[in-house]
Structures are given as C-alpha cells and as structure tokens.
Computed example of a mutant assay.
Amino acid sequence: MKQTIYEQYELRVERKQKVRHYDAFWANRVMYILVPVGHLEEAEIEELQSLSEYMIRTHQDIYVSSFVKNKSESYTTEIEGRKMALFRMPYDYSSRKLVVGKELALFHLNGRSFPAKVTSINRIGQWKSLWVKRIDQMEHFFREKVRSNPIDVFDTLFVESFPYYMGLTENAIQYLVDTELDDSPMINDAATLCHHRFTNLTWQQSQWMKLPTDWIFDHAARDLSEWIRAECRKGPDMNPGSIQTFLKDYERVSPLSSFSWRLLYARLVFPVHYFECVEDYYTSGPVADKKWHEDRLKGILQSSDMYEQVLGNFYDLAGVPAKTYGIPELEWVKR
C-alpha cells in the first residue's frame, strides 16, 4: 500500500492508523484517509467531488474531506485489488464545540444552494418506489423460506418476525403517499445534501470529519429520521431529551414544515434497520459470523416494543402540535 501511494500520489506514508474502519495515514503533517469506492459509478464519484469542492470553496466548510487526484488526474486508484479514493482530512478542530442539530441544519442549507443539477446520487421523490421494490423482494424471499422450512436460528427469527415488519412497511408507504397527496412542500423541502445513514457517529465528532462518500441528494428529513432512529435503538439508554434538543437546535436554523414532519415520520415508520439486518445476513456468504447476525436481529426484535412506543408518541416527543398542523397519527401504535 505504501509503495502504491507513493507511486500514485507522491506521498510518503509516515504513520498509519484507523479512522472509523478505514485505513488512514499521515504524510507531511496532514492526515489522509483511504475509502473503498467500488460500489460507486464514475458519474456518482464526479458528482460527489463537485459537491465536496462546492462545500469547501463556496461555504468554507472546514470539516469536509477533499478528494485527492492521483498522477493520472483520476480520483480513484486501484490499491491491493480494490478501487479506492484518497481524501485529505480536515485539520483537527476537536477543541471546537459544535452542536450536531445546528451543524446539520447549516449543512442542509448550504447543500440546497448547489447550482448544478444532481442526477446520479439523487433520491428525492424515490422513497415510495424504493420501499415497494424492497418489500416485494423480501416478501418473495420470505415465501421461499417458509416453503423450504427454516433451517437455522436466523431463518426462524426472520420467518416469525417478517409479517410484523411487512405491516409496518405498508403503513409507512401509505403514510408517505397520503403526505404527498394532502400536503405541499415549502422552500426548505427542496432536495439537499444528505447522508445514506446519518447518526451521532457519522461526523466522528472528536474530529468532525465530513466524508463525501457518505453523501446522497435527498430530502433533509432523511438525515433527521435516521439520527432519531439510531437514538431510539439504544433501548433503555435512549434519552428522549437528546432527541428534543437535536430537533430544536436544527429548527433554530431551519424550521420544518408540516410536510417535512410527515416525511420524517414516514421514514421512521419504515423499518430500514430490520431490512438491512436481514439483507446483510443473506448476502454475507458462508464465512459470515452467524452468531453476530443472530444477535443483531435479536436486538432489533427485543427493542421493537420500545421503538413502537416512540412511533406512538413521536409528535409529542418532538414537541409538534400535530392537530394544529393537521398532521395525522398512526393510531394503532399509540398507547
């Protein structure tokens, strides 16, 4: 790896370390991070590079990691058989105290003003079709499993739990459809820069690193709901106050419309954490750590009651006057 980095980027690796689960190294008192990008198309990488440059140059976002070109003027390099991108990490500003909700609202505000059309990483307006496709695929898989009889612990857990999560998904899709029919988006509902799965760990708050490969173009409610989902899944350690603070900090910069609240809620109802757990297990191959996957699924199932309680009381928890806004609630999850 050291040799390839020197040949491709003329950087001498001085000290290696891990940042998140990625390889990182120091060179000339600057930290760089290597990120696998084999799952990304060239057009997606080009858009992510343009967006990162825009956030750095136009909005002076000092926390955005910047793409580094190799000697061939390319943003990707083959290293040890994998397609990788090299990023220059921001300087360590860990002494600066930043507020996640406020910082996310500013990030969305800046991303919304990107002047070019985004197509390759755009997901705005696609939730319904993606959710329908996902549930159809999993339902088909579920029927196959039932027909062939579950053979291990994970199979059994999946077969027993899927009907409940299918019901949740149908509720989420219907809630989303009703929102798009009954409500109207406002200015702050325009597409912006978001993350695939935004949690408290995404920006590595000891370093506040914003990594372009985490990004996607979507409605801001995506990030808000995924952050809240991660908090809700802490089980007994969940702190409702942290969710309230996060939302208030966000709204001080960028108030949410009733349309935003409804999209946020629809996405919370959609059990993406369950889908990802099941999909990861069945696509992980024969060498997978079965016990780890089983424990992960058991954890989701054990916390389902608490998660349902959050869904039932979400608008109260968030301090949203649902009746005043004319926002419907899912009655069956209210207790």
Rank of each mutant, 00 (worst) to 15 (best):
M186I: 09
D189M: 01
Y175F: 14
I173W: 03
D136G: 04
Q137D: 15
P163G: 03
S129N: 03
L181D: 07
L157K: 12
K128G: 00
V153H: 12
Y175P: 04
L176D: 02
R134M: 08
P150Y: 09
R134K: 15
S129E: 05
I173A: 00
E160D: 07
R147C: 03
V132G: 01
V177P: 06
Q174I: 08
A191T: 01
P185I: 00
E160Y: 07
S129Q: 05
R123Q: 12
I151V: 14
D182P: 04
V159L: 12
E160T: 03
R143W: 10
V146P: 01
D189C: 01
D183F: 14
V153G: 04
S184M: 09
A191Y: 00
R143M: 12
K133D: 00
M138L: 15
G125F: 01
L130S: 06
I173H: 01
R123E: 08
Y165T: 04
N188F: 07
D182E: 10
W127L: 10
Y164N: 10
E180I: 05
H140M: 11
A190S: 13
L168A: 08
I124V: 14
F141E: 05
F141T: 08
L168G: 04
I124Y: 06
D182L: 11
Y165W: 09
M166R: 11
D189L: 00
V132I: 12
I135G: 01
S148G: 08
P163I: 11
Y175C: 06
V132C: 05
D178Q: 13
F142E: 05
M166G: 01
S148R: 12
Y164R: 14
M166E: 10
M166L: 10
D182W: 05
S148V: 07
N188V: 05
L181W: 00
K145F: 06
K128N: 09
I187D: 12
E180W: 03
P163E: 01
M186A: 12
D136Y: 11
D189A: 03
Q126S: 15
Q174T: 08
Y175D: 03
D155W: 09
D183N: 14
M186R: 01
G125L: 00
Q137E: 15
N171C: 05
V153I: 14
Q174C: 10
P185S: 09
E170Y: 01
I173K: 04
V153A: 13
V132A: 03
A191Q: 09
V146D: 06
Q174W: 02
R147Y: 09
K145A: 10
R147G: 01
V159K: 11
L181P: 00
P150G: 15
D183Y: 12
S184F: 06
G167I: 08
E144W: 03
F142C: 03
L176E: 02
Q137K: 15
R147T: 07
A172D: 04
T156R: 15
A172P: 05
K128C: 09
R143T: 08
